[in-house]
Amino acid sequence: MRNSNLATENFSSGKKNYFLDFKRAVNDNHYLCITRSDEQDDGSYKRSTVVVFEQDFHFLISAMSSLFHSAVYLNQDNFSVADVARLKSSGVNKGIKSWDVNLRPREKFVALGSSHMSDAELIAMLIGSGRIDVSAVDLAENILKAVGGRLDLLAVQDHKALSRFKGVGLAKSSAILAAFELGRRMCAV
Rank of each mutant, 00 (worst) to 15 (best):
R47N: 15
C33Y: 07
R131C: 09
S4H: 03
A146R: 04
K145Q: 09
Q76N: 14
F109T: 04
C187R: 14
A63W: 09
F79K: 11
S12H: 12
I123G: 00
F109Y: 14
D152V: 09
S118Q: 07
D138H: 12
M125I: 09
V84W: 04
L32Q: 05
F11Q: 05
S174V: 07
G43W: 09
A179K: 03
V110T: 12
R185H: 07
N29M: 09
K15T: 12
A171P: 01
R2V: 12
H116R: 13
R47Q: 15
F180E: 03
S163C: 15
V84G: 00
S89P: 01
L162N: 02
F180P: 01
I123K: 00
E181W: 03
H58P: 04
L32S: 07
T49Y: 08
I176W: 00
L139G: 00
S80F: 10
V72W: 09
S70L: 06
S37A: 12
G149I: 01
L144W: 02
I34G: 07
D133L: 08
C33I: 05
L60Y: 14
L151G: 03
G113H: 11
N10T: 11
L153C: 08
N10C: 13
S118Y: 06
A188E: 09
L177T: 05
S174Y: 06
N27A: 06
Y31C: 05
S90I: 05
L139V: 06
A111H: 08
K160I: 10
R104E: 01
D38Y: 06
C33W: 06
Y73P: 00
G169A: 04
L162P: 01
A140W: 00
R24F: 01
R131G: 07
S66D: 12
G128H: 02
S90C: 09
K46Y: 14
L177A: 08
S70N: 15
V84H: 03
M1T: 08
I96T: 12
G95V: 04
N75H: 15
Q76F: 14
L170F: 08
L32V: 13
S173N: 06
E54M: 01
Y73F: 15
K94M: 13
D83R: 11
A136L: 00
A111Y: 05
W99E: 04
F79Y: 15
M64F: 14
H58Y: 15
S62W: 01
N10M: 14
V52G: 04
I61G: 02
N142M: 13
A7H: 09
T35R: 13
L32N: 05
Q157G: 02
D83G: 13
V147K: 06
K160W: 06
G167Y: 03
N3V: 08
E121G: 02
V110F: 10
V81F: 15
D119C: 11
L153P: 02
Y31F: 15
S118F: 06
S135F: 02
A85R: 14
Y31D: 03
Y18F: 12
L60K: 13
A178W: 10
L6V: 05
K145L: 08
E54H: 05
D138M: 13
T35M: 12
H69N: 15
A7T: 02
S115T: 05
A7N: 08
S70G: 15
S115I: 03
S80C: 10
G14M: 05
S65M: 05
D28H: 14
R2G: 11
S135Y: 01
P105Q: 08
S70W: 07
F68R: 13
A71T: 11
M1K: 10
E54T: 02
